[in-house]
Structure formats: C-alpha cells, structure tokens
Design a protein around this nucleic acid. Structure first.
Lengths: 222, 222
DNA sequence: ACCTGAACACCGTTCAAGT
DNA sequence: ACCTGAACACCGTTCAAGT
C-alpha cells in the first residue's frame, strides 16, 4: 500500500495546508504522515525534522511576498499606500504572521516593501540616516500595528471593568473620549490615521539633535 | 519525604522562576514537580492544568505593572516620556512580553500607561475621538516597536545578501542611506525619533476627513 | 482537603533493517 | 536513494486510592 514516491514538495504543501487551517501547533509529524499515507519516518528523510519543516514553510511564503506598488501622487500618500498594502498582504496570512515573527524573519519579509519605501522617502527629499530612519519607522509601525491588531482579534473582551475605568471623570471630563476608548477601535481607520500622522511627522520633522537626551556620537563620517 | 504543605503560591513562584530563566516552553509539569519535591499530580490540584498555570503567571505580572509618571514640561515630550517608560518596563521582562502577547492581554497591561496618555493628550488640546485615536496610536506604536525589536534581537543576521541589496544604486544613489540601512539600527534612537515624529504628527495633524479613501459614517453623534 | 503512583494517549526522534 | 516498524525518552492529564 506504500506510495510510489514521496517528494519534499508534497510534504511541504501538505504541511502548509494543515498549518494554514489550524496553525502550526496542531501540525504533528504523525498527523502529517497519516495525511500523506506514509510512515512517519519517511518525512524525516525529506525534511530533517519538525523544526526545519516549519522553517521551510516560512521561507517559502516569505518568498511568495511580491513587490508592492505605491499608489497616489505626492510622496506622503504614496508611502501611506505602501504601508496599507503591506498590511493587506499580511492580514491574508494570519498564522504566517506569527510564524515569521517567531522566527525573527519579519525584516526579510519586508525587503520588497522597504525598497518601495526607500524610493518614496527619497522622492520626498530625505537623505542619508534620516531617510533610513523614516523607512524603518514606517516599517516598524506597520508590522507592530499588525501584531497588536492580530493580538486584539484573538481576545475579544479584555478585562472586566474596562468600561468602568473610562468613566467621564477618568477621561478628564471628556465624555466623547470616554466613549471612544470604551468602544473597540476601528482598525482600518486607526491604521490610516496613525500612519499618516507618522509620515507627516517624519517628512516635516526637525533635524537630528534630540532635545532631552544624549545622543551617541556619529563615528562613521570619516 | 513528602512536603508539609504545598501552596498555590509556592507553585506559582517556582513556575515563575523557571519561566523567567528559560521561557515558558521549557516549563514542564514534571520538571516543576521535581523542583518542588512533590508528585506531578499535586500541582494539578492547586492550579488545574498547565495552561491555567501560565495564565496565572501572566495575570500576576500584568498586575505588577505599576503606574507611569510622565516627565517634561510640554505635552509632546511628556507623551514621548510615557512611551519610553513603557518600553523600559517591558524590556525588563523579555519572556513575559511574548506570553502576554500570545494571550491577547497586551491592552490590559497598558491600562496604566493609557491613563497617563489620556491625560497628556488632553492637555495638548485634543478632544473626543481624535484624542482617543492619538492615545491608541502611541500605545500601538510602542507595543509594536517592542515586539519587532524583540524579534530582531533574537535573529541577529537575517538573509545573505542584505548588504548587497542595499548597494548605492538600489538606494537611489544615496551612499549614506545605503550604509545606514545595511547597518543594524540603533533601537533607542529609532524609537525616540519615531515616537516623536508620530506625536508631532498627531498633535499637529489636520481634521477627520481622509483625502484618499471613504470613511465610515459616524453614527454616534445623536 | 490534599497528596500519591499507575496508567493512558499522545509527542518528536533515532536506528537498524529492508528494498 | 528511499522507505519501514520498533523503540526510546519524553509529554499533559485522568483517576482511583490513599490519608
């Protein structure tokens, strides 16, 4: 009853299917073997072990991540559009976000987007270290937003008394603020406004000298 | 040789010690029992099962998170100082960040900081929904930054060829940009500048009407 | 009320043996 | 080169039995 020839690709895509449905924690080598109709140990021959199987899955999907095209005319909205596209792409692969995150590959996954961001930031007139910081800030805000957002989605209601906590008095006598903080945030809207504010701040912002704290010396000029 | 009386507190703090050192994945019920000098099953009587044991650990440390005091004079630097304090607190508990994140309790953990932020944003003149959005944006940027930062720390060198990728030509003929993106970012500095840019953008930014995309109707005015 | 050992149903992985 | 079953060393959890 043995299969004719098991390939590494077959193993990977079967594993990918299982992970896409229920996440990596439900993927056991034995279940995967059953799914494929082989002995558990055959899988080991093709992929080494469970850890490197998951690594391969992540690697594969990181590469699936295509290049992103900015939309809009001015640099600022174009940057915002890249961030939004990034978010859209990642939201389509919920389990993957966590896996890439766990493996510390977030940065690599963002290389295409980073290139687009570099181009736009450059068009906006930023150069050198300031341009690099702007690119990284947008990137990190987007990824961070996504991680937090996914976090929030998984746990609907947080603590008892969160409503009470934001009574009007706690919110500085601002009933609209109290109401807004009690209700769950609209993620699309929040993302858009926060990215726009960040980009505005980055493109408009002052020079390098921080007002409050010491800055490390720049020893790369010579 | 049995212990005189095992308490729930003893179980929790022994577990906390193990987790603090090597993370939750190394905590097994059997190891914990050995550490405590009891039978594995005794633990179950006190904490139910492994999952609720970890839940209790997270819960306990979430409550340890104290109130934060802003520093500085103007609203903007005070907000920035809250964000930085938040980051400092969390960086002191590396494994915990992940555990709180996994359990979707990030928001609850940030309630004290949120209150401080509300106060400052209010002092800066923001009201209602805009104030709420500003608070959330700063909060989400800080958490997000932290998650990404921790991610980066765990995986030192990313892909082969990341250096090549940022040759001067790819970076729009900007050698300083290319250099800056090749080198690892200075997280402290990046955090400071990004938060400051975000806060500046939020406090200065325009009204509610987004330029490019449709916004959901506000049906909470009447 | 609290503790115990035995047992169950799982894991990932190794290895010697097959073809 | 590829596949196999048996075995090892682990898991978390349940349960009947003790005091």
């Amino acid at each position: 009853m043995a299969r004719s020839s098991l390939t590494r690709e077959e193993v990977l895509s079967a594993a990918a299917a299982l992970v896409r449905q229920h996440g990596p924690q439900t993927l056991t080598m034995r279940k995967l073997a059953a799914e494929l109709g082989t002995a558990v140990t055959s899988i080991y021959w093709h992929v080494g072990n469970r850890e490197s199987l998951l690594d391969a899955l992540v690697e594969r999907t990181v590469q699936e991540m295509g290049t992103l095209r900015p939309a809009g005319r001015a640099p600022a909205p174009r940057i915002v559009s890249v961030a939004r596209a990034l978010r859209r792409e990642l939201r389509a692969r919920p389990h993957l976000i966590a896996m890439v995150h766990e493996r510390g590959l977030t940065e690599r996954m963002f290389l295409p987007a980073q290139q687009a961001l570099v181009h736009e930031v450059h068009a906006a007139g930023l150069r050198g270290a300031r341009a690099a910081a702007a690119v990284r800030a947008v990137q990190i805000h987007t990824v961070g937003f996504l991680l937090v957002e996914r976090n929030r989605e998984r746990s609907p209601v947080q603590s008892p008394g969160e409503g009470d906590l934001w009574s009007t008095s706690t919110a500085g006598g601002d009933p609209a603020l109290a109401r807004a903080l009690t209700r769950p945030a609209d993620p699309d809207r929040l993302f858009h406004t926060s990215v726009r504010a960040l980009v505005d701040g980055l493109l408009a912002g002052g020079g390098n000298e921080g007002p409050a704290d010491p800055e490390p010396p720049d020893r790369n000029r010579g």
